[in-house]
Deep mutational scan, measured.
Amino acid sequence: SLTLTVRGEEAVRRWYKWAQAHNLEVEVETHGDEYVLHIK
């Protein structure tokens, strides 16, 4: 499992696509303009 902090929706989309390509689940938490992604 992997936890990432990114800024901006574009980065979130990029990681989301990456995770889907690897059959992984993604949980997204929003903290202001930062997003915490939990990839499992």
Rank of each mutant, 00 (worst) to 15 (best):
V26W: 06
R7E: 05
L4M: 09
A11I: 07
Q20Y: 10
E10F: 06
A21N: 10
W15G: 01
E9T: 09
V28L: 10
R13P: 01
L37Q: 00
R14D: 08
E9A: 11
Y35R: 03
K40S: 12
R14P: 02
K40L: 08
V28H: 04
H38T: 14
A19G: 03
Y35S: 03
H31I: 13
W18Q: 01
Q20M: 13
Y35W: 08
R13I: 12
R13V: 09
H38Q: 06
T5G: 03
V36W: 05
R13H: 10
A11K: 04
R14T: 06
L24A: 07
V28N: 01
V12Q: 03
R7D: 05
R7H: 12
V36G: 01
G32T: 04
A19L: 10
H22I: 03
D33H: 07
E9P: 08
R14I: 08
E25R: 11
K17I: 12
K17Q: 14
T5F: 07
E10N: 09
L2Q: 04
K17Y: 10
N23H: 12
R7Q: 12
N23S: 09
E25Q: 13
V28M: 10
G32R: 04
L37R: 00
L2H: 08
N23T: 03
H22E: 04
H38A: 04
K40H: 12
E10G: 07
D33S: 07
G8P: 01
Y35F: 13
A11W: 06
T3E: 06
E10H: 09
K17N: 11
W15Y: 05
V36L: 08
W15P: 00
L4H: 04
T30V: 15
R13Q: 13
A21I: 11
Q20H: 09
S1P: 08
E10A: 13
K17G: 05
Y35Q: 02
E27R: 13
H22V: 03
G8M: 04
E9Q: 10
A19E: 00
I39A: 01
S1E: 14
R7F: 13
A11C: 15
T3W: 06
T5N: 08
K17P: 01
S1M: 12
L24D: 01
L24W: 11
W15M: 06
E29M: 08
W18P: 00
H31W: 10
V26D: 00
E25A: 10
V26C: 12
E27Y: 14
R13E: 12
W18G: 00
V6F: 03
L24M: 14
H22T: 02
N23K: 09
G32H: 04
A11Q: 09
S1V: 13
V6S: 01
L24H: 04
A11P: 02
E27G: 04
W15D: 00
E29W: 10
R7W: 12
H31R: 13
E10W: 07
R7L: 10
V26S: 01
R7I: 13
I39K: 00
V28C: 12
V26M: 14
Q20E: 14
Q20S: 10
R13F: 07
E29K: 08
T3F: 05
Y35G: 01
Q20G: 04
K17W: 10
E29F: 12
D33N: 10
W15K: 01
G32F: 05
V26Y: 07
A19S: 03
E34F: 15
S1G: 14
L24I: 06
G32I: 05
L24K: 04
E25H: 13
E29G: 04
V36D: 02
N23Y: 08
W15N: 00
H22N: 10
D33A: 07
S1K: 13
Y16C: 15
V6T: 02
E34V: 15
W15V: 11
G32Y: 04
V36T: 10
Q20F: 08
Q20P: 00
G8Y: 04
G8V: 03
N23P: 01
V12P: 00
A11S: 07
E10V: 09
H22W: 05
A11T: 08
E34K: 11
G32L: 05
H22A: 04
N23I: 03
E27K: 12
W15L: 10
T5Q: 07
A21S: 10
